[in-house]
Design a protein around this nucleic acid. Structure first.
Lengths: 194, 194
DNA sequence: CATAGTTTACCTATCGGTAAGTAAGTAAAT
DNA sequence: ATTTACTTACTTACCGATAGGTAAACTATG
């Protein structure tokens, strides 16, 4: 039996480093705009080394998206821990906005289907995107039920509006390089929506 | 002996044709995702012919964006012709949504800074984008003044929210390939916002 | 015949990706 | 303790394909 131990004293985190660096480059220049060479150069390794750790560019990209998604997910989950529904909603919005501001560019890929090219990647994004909507919708439904919103409203549309509003806002502000006061804006959205 | 394509009675509008075709390809595959060869192939001409009409890929792209922008602009302008403020707002939203649905993908480039690469193009988009906000904001301000919206609201934020909501919605629906009932949604937005 | 419009043929740069080689470490057998 | 077998984590050097772009020859038409 041959059990090879992992190397001890050296902290091996090349894979994570690659994802980290790739994350920045993809978010800045999009999937097609950032090349494997670019990523390698920024890491001071060769392109071939990337292919030692990942089997393709698409695989790196998917891992990048997965990382962003899981961060966003826990950020949204945090909101559910609030006690009152109003607070939940407020926290959801604020966390979402804060997250989007931090990850300025990459969230676009996740939200906005910015990956041309392989259907494989599109499918992956589609899947993540659905997950996000599913995270938000229950909370919105809860709010609607609680507030007894007027007839026409359905939770799907409201969720779309809410998500759209947040995404759009983030884009607007990141586009113009404006600062955003997430607390103020969150409050405004809450008061506007319900 | 080479036989070149017949081109006698046909109307020569190659430049417009190029912009038309490029528009579709850019919107479907983004700037980086659509190549000059792709454009040429779809037009049944050669790549070199493109360079007879345009000096670079970037120039074609800018012209494409300009065309989209002017269409959007007149679509927004239409709203101002309505008599009551409520109607204006409704028309603004509906026209914007309808336009966005028609030009599904390209509006993204205009709205969402999807062009990596040359700063030249980014600058161009920035400029168009500002113009659009400037078109919308006066109407929103008018509505706010008229409705005497509650204290905290300022027209810039509301405009951002509105634009964001519309862009976000369009993306959401185009992403999921859902049909959108622009009348219903427009009404919902109006009633939610004000 | 002049010229607008197009094609052919080609350029260089870069793309994603791969084959082969290797220094350095690890684990087990001698 | 040394050797042997093997792994890890790379590098070098290259591949075919394609990118944007250009020079020059060609063709159709007014």
């Amino acid at each position: 039996m041959k059990t090879y131990k992992k190397q001890k004293n050296i902290v091996r985190r090349t894979r994570e480093d690659i994802i980290e660096v790739a994350s920045h480059l993809f978010s800045e220049y999009t999937y097609l705009g950032a090349s494997m060479s670019d990523i390698a150069k920024k890491l001071n390794i060769t392109k071939a080394a990337l292919y030692y750790h990942f089997k393709s560019k698409a695989e790196i990209y998917k891992k990048v998206l997965d990382r962003i998604f899981s961060e966003l997910k826990s950020s949204i989950a945090e909101a559910s821990s609030e006690r009152t529904i109003d607070k939940k909603l407020y926290r959801l919005i604020k966390n979402y906005l804060d997250f989007g501001l931090k990850e300025k560019n990459l969230i676009r890929a996740l939200m906005l289907k910015l990956s041309p090219g392989s259907p494989e990647i599109n499918k992956h994004i589609m899947h993540l995107r659905e997950n996000i909507v599913n995270l938000i919708q229950p909370l919105v439904r809860e709010v609607i039920l609680n507030k007894k919103i007027t007839g026409e409203s359905d939770s799907y549309l409201i969720t779309s509006l809410l998500a759209g509003m947040m995404d759009g806002l983030l884009l607007e502000y990141s586009f113009l390089n404006k600062k955003i006061d997430s607390e103020k804006v969150s409050n405004q959205i809450v008061s506007i929506l319900f």
